[in-house]
Nucleic acid binder design. Structure first.
Lengths: 120, 120
DNA sequence: CCAGCTACCTAGCGTCACTAGGCTTACAAC
DNA sequence: GTTGTAAGCCTAGTGACGCTAGGTAGCTGG
């Protein structure tokens, strides 16, 4: 699971996290860790800039919240645009994932039987 | 299906293509188009450098071949390392894809019923 | 007081797919 | 014969983006 793999997909999963409930950056990171069974354990330097990017794109917006006896946090929530984008991106994720799987599994579903299967 | 999505996955699908049969660059591009039902229609400027990269990593190697009445082509085929790497990468692809799907579909399996379900 | 956690931010780096261009050879049409 | 089109290969440069490394600040417990 290299770092490059995430490129182009980070925005999507961030939107997905925020679609369940508004959350601040740190919480987003924890949610991601949980929902992915520890496979996405992202550094802050990855997540914060991504959130800023999404806000610039107006797919999310933020508000500062100070919980009782806590320090202030920046809480993000999806905009209408964001929700729409998420649905769209879920579709293109499926399309992409299907395409990759199709290529990866093309003739190697069961490599042992390959010769057998492709025989006339 | 943006361009960024492919990052970190291109090598894997190229290895997969070459695992069925050796092929030259142009043929790899066509195979990819076919096996992905047109979703991967990659420019040469993407594929050739990637093939060179894989050769440097010794996951594939190449030989110049001149077919009857044709011009010479550079034909690539998997090395033992390449075949091993492919198996490994198939695993990490599944892991990655599962994680993304898990996050994407977490609470949005049926978004229409969400409000209903989360109501007190 | 200091360690450690929460919580936020950013400049710079390295990787990588893609753009845009160039080159050569086979084959068909005019 | 030359012009066009497709096959076939290559590479310098660009832009996007995740990550590293570093900083700031508040709260809690020993």
């Amino acid at each position: 699971m290299t770092a490059e793999m995430l490129k182009g997909h980070l925005d999507n999963i961030l939107l997905a996290i925020l679609s369940s409930a508004p959350a601040h950056g740190y919480a987003v990171i924890e949610q991601l860790r949980q929902r992915s069974a520890g496979r996405f354990d992202l550094p802050e330097g990855t997540v914060y800039p991504a959130l800023h990017r999404l806000e610039t794109l107006e797919l999310i917006d933020s508000s500062w919240v100070t919980p009782e006896g806590g320090r202030r946090r920046r809480v993000y929530h999806l905009t209408a645009n964001g929700r729409e984008a998420l649905n769209q991106r879920r579709g293109s994720w499926r399309s992409f994932a299907d395409a990759v799987s199709a290529v990866l599994d093309a003739d190697a579903v069961n490599p042992v039987h390959k010769a057998e299967a492709s025989a006339p």
